[in-house]
């Protein structure tokens, strides 16, 4: 029988005993390795992102130049639109001769136009009729056609042998002269 006379603190550890210092040291080493690994991983990300941003820095001016071309084109289009509308503003409405023609084409019976004048969007018709009844019929025809008639003068001439008149005729309500 062998008796260990060494105090328990100084006795050598058993082979199966857990060496806590070693475990803690190993964990610390692993932790250090892990943190260093994570650091390098983040550094790799930084490098990758830096590279991407660097590429973007180089690519961005190219895109911006192209976008500037588009913006310049937009400005140019606005100027062209203005130029076009200015030119179109010079175009005249049509319809003056048609208005005169329409008024004259409605003359029936013993009514004659002496002058037909278009001015200020209305037709002034001066003429004469065999009598007041003929003139009234003509005015009725004009109004039935949707024209607004204003009799500015109507006077029997030469002992009633005929009646001279002046009418102002405006187009139908809502009619606008337009370039067809």
């Amino acid at each position: 029988m062998r008796i260990n006379l060494l105090p328990p603190d100084e006795r050598p550890l058993k082979a199966s005993a857990i060496r806590w210092e070693f475990v803690v040291g190993a964990v610390g080493l692993c932790l250090l390795a892990l943190t260093i690994g994570l650091y390098f991983s983040e550094q790799a990300k930084v490098k990758h992102l830096d590279f991407q941003l660097d590429q973007w820095e180089k690519y961005q001016p190219v895109l911006q130049r192209q976008a500037q071309v588009v913006n310049d084109l937009r400005v140019e289009l606005r100027n062209l639109e203005g130029q076009k509308s200015k030119l179109e503003g010079l175009m005249a409405p049509l319809g003056q001769v048609q208005q005169i023609d329409e008024a004259l084409a409605l003359i029936k019976g013993e009514v004659w136009a002496e002058t037909a004048t278009w001015t200020g969007n209305r037709v002034r018709l001066s003429g004469y009729a065999a009598n007041m009844t003929e003139l009234t019929s003509f005015v009725n025809i004009l109004e039935a056609a949707g024209l607004k008639v204003n009799i500015t003068a109507a006077r029997p001439e030469d002992a009633g042998s005929f009646t001279t008149f002046t009418l102002e005729i405006e187009g139908r309500a809502g009619d606008e002269l337009g370039r067809s």
Binding site: L104, A113, A116
Partner: peptide, 9 residues
């Protein structure tokens, strides 16, 4: 034009 020329007296 549609008007008859006789209507212009």
């Amino acid at each position: 034009p549609a008007f008859s020329r006789d209507v212009v007296g």
